[in-house]
Computed example of a mutant assay.
Amino acid sequence: MAAAKRFKMSPLTIGTHNGHFHADEALAVYMLRLLPTYHSSQLIRTRDPTLLQTCHTVVDVGGEYEPSTNRYDHHQRTFNTTFPNRPTKLSSAGLVYLHFGKAIIAQHLNVSEDAAEVTVIWEKVYESFIEALDAHDNGISAYDPKAIAAAELKKNFSDGGFTLGAMVGRLNPNWNDPTPSDLVEAQKVEDEKFLVASTRIGEEFSRDLDYYTKAWLPARGIVHNAYAKRLEHDKSGRILVFEGQSVPWKDHLYTLEEKEGGDAKVLYVLYPEKPTLDAKWRIQAVPVSKDSFESRKPLPEAWRGFRDEKLDEITGVDGGVFVHAAGFIGGNKNFDGAKKMALKALDL
């Protein structure tokens, strides 16, 4: 009886490999520990099959993917699992998110896993955060290397130190760091570094989740409403207006346009700088894609870099505040002025 009681009170264990650690298993462990089942779990980092067999859940090691027994490795030759409707082969982070992501999101939103918004966030966070880690761990490039070579494209600078994978990689022990001669102590030091990495990348995941649940999702209805009213400002629907305040709009706009189809695209977005009656207004050119610096239609070149009265003189619109030298954004003292600037820019 006493033995059975000790067994029930024994902490649940998560197993992963020791040695050099990576972003995927660091995040996988963090995500699991967000859930009540794993909140007080112990971590065993080893490649010893006998020890791994004792673990409740194993990620990124063991050569087995079997959800029924909580085994989530992706290194098998036959492994080819992907997230629904995405092409990238999963890593241990993707596998844990595939099976536990909805529970994490539902807990964050305090709703049922069946709630429609859970699926929306589940898909969005995978595409915006998890997929890049899956690709990094599986050696998948963001662009087709052959196509890049054929086009003779070269990087203008190195961005290797600014990825999540590289950030975790830097937290590994250096080759010449002092190492305890005692193997148990050496493993303890390595495990402590892993936990730092797991917490660090986990914080980034939690910030992303927080953004999509608390800011991005509530903005969706506002963008949909503004999109439905766009013909009130321009008969071709090329101007989008946020009447109260600006919200995260790019993702939602692109989704709406894709769903509607056709060639008509929004070119300028107007919004007040703050939610007050005396606020100045901004006019922003819509980028060709979410992460692009190139605009679909930048503000006219002749306006760029000018301010105040000189800008009024050039545009023929009173109340001008500025137009950025790159032409992606400008401002006016009021909504009417911003709208007149947008309408003029459409024809230039």
Rank of each mutant, 00 (worst) to 15 (best):
A325M: 07
V317C: 12
K297N: 10
K274W: 10
H324E: 06
V323I: 14
Y268E: 00
K280L: 06
K280P: 02
Q284T: 12
Y268D: 03
G327E: 01
F322K: 00
K265R: 14
F306N: 14
W281N: 08
S292I: 09
F306I: 02
V269Q: 06
I314Y: 10
S295P: 00
A302W: 02
Q284W: 01
A302V: 14
R307M: 12
S289H: 13
T276P: 00
V288A: 02
L267K: 07
T276Y: 09
A326H: 04
Y268I: 01
F293D: 05
G305T: 06
R307L: 07
S295W: 01
G305R: 04
K310Y: 13
E273Q: 14
I314C: 02
D291C: 01
K265M: 09
I314S: 08
D312L: 04
K290W: 06
E294D: 11
R296Y: 00
A279K: 00
A279G: 08
K274E: 15
L299R: 04
T276M: 12
L311C: 04
V288G: 00
K274H: 13
G327T: 03
F306A: 09
G316F: 13
P287A: 07
R304M: 07
S289N: 14
D278Y: 07
F328H: 05
E309F: 15
A325L: 06
K265E: 11
L299Y: 06
G319I: 04
E294M: 12
R304L: 07
A326Y: 05
G327C: 01
G316L: 11
A325Q: 10
E301K: 14
S295H: 05
K297A: 10
D278T: 09
Y268S: 05
P287D: 02
A302E: 14
G319T: 03
A285V: 04
V269S: 07
E313H: 15
D312S: 15
L299E: 06
W303I: 00
E309P: 13
G320K: 05
S295R: 05
K274D: 09
A302K: 15
V286C: 08
